[in-house]
Simulated assay, not measured.
Amino acid sequence: MIPKSIIEAIVDQYAQPLEGRHGLSHWARVLENGRLLAKRTDADLTVVELFSVFHDAGRQNEAFDPDHGARGAELARQFHKEGLLTLTDRQLALLTLACETHTDGLITGDLTVRVCWDSDRLDLGRAGIRPALGLLCTGAARDSEVMEWASERSLSGHLPDLLSSEWGIHLKEEQSA
């Protein structure tokens, strides 16, 4: 579980609308996608969970922002240096790599990084994009039931319960994409 202090610190510096396409409900769906995929693989759950909140945390706009992943990775490094994140060197390297490269369309590499990418790609429905089967990196993400489950939630703007139960945040229901 992601400590509430990390969520609060990310939210405090986030420059975009919390209700936006790349905001809190997206992070929460990515988290739930990642938890599901991590259960079905040997991915490092800590890294997968943290990816969900750092990968878009450095966005400067809701449109084309090619350096947002690198900014999210740098934020993770900063939090680690300040002691807010306690990770092994390997975990920090995996987290920052996953953030920096999550929009590059890569499909090979470390299993944990691939699970991170898949957890985000499974939520592309919010932007009107159906995840391409060939761009999903793991068998767990390519499972038709997982794809359908994630797609329905993404398209409907589902607000996961963890927003309030784990993060103490209450948002209004989103409009369908």
Rank of each mutant, 00 (worst) to 15 (best):
I2C: 10
I2H: 09
P3N: 04
S5H: 12
I6G: 02
I7E: 00
Q16N: 13
Q16R: 14
Q16V: 04
E19Y: 13
G20A: 15
G20M: 10
L24E: 08
H26D: 05
W27C: 12
W27A: 15
W27T: 05
V30C: 14
G34H: 11
R35W: 14
L37F: 05
L37I: 06
L37R: 12
K39R: 15
L45G: 08
L50N: 07
F51Y: 15
V53E: 08
F54K: 12
H55L: 04
A57N: 06
A57H: 07
Q60L: 11
A63N: 09
F64V: 12
D65P: 01
R71T: 01
G72L: 05
A76K: 08
A76M: 03
R77K: 14
R77N: 10
Q78A: 06
K81A: 14
K81Q: 14
L87T: 03
D89V: 07
Q91T: 02
Q91D: 04
L92R: 07
L92T: 09
A93L: 06
T96M: 04
T96C: 15
L97A: 12
C99W: 04
C99D: 12
T101L: 05
T103R: 13
G105T: 01
G109E: 08
L111G: 01
T112H: 08
C116R: 11
W117S: 03
D118A: 06
S119R: 09
S119H: 10
D120N: 11
R121L: 12
A127C: 02
G128D: 07
G128S: 11
I129H: 07
L133V: 13
L135V: 00
L136Y: 04
T138P: 13
T138A: 11
E145H: 13
W149N: 13
S151F: 10
S151R: 05
E152H: 07
R153C: 06
R153E: 06
S154Y: 10
L155H: 09
G157N: 10
G157P: 05
L159I: 04
L159T: 00
L162Q: 04
H170E: 13
L171T: 00
K172T: 09
E174Q: 10
Q175K: 08
S176D: 03
S176L: 00
S176T: 08
S176Q: 03
A177H: 03
A177E: 00
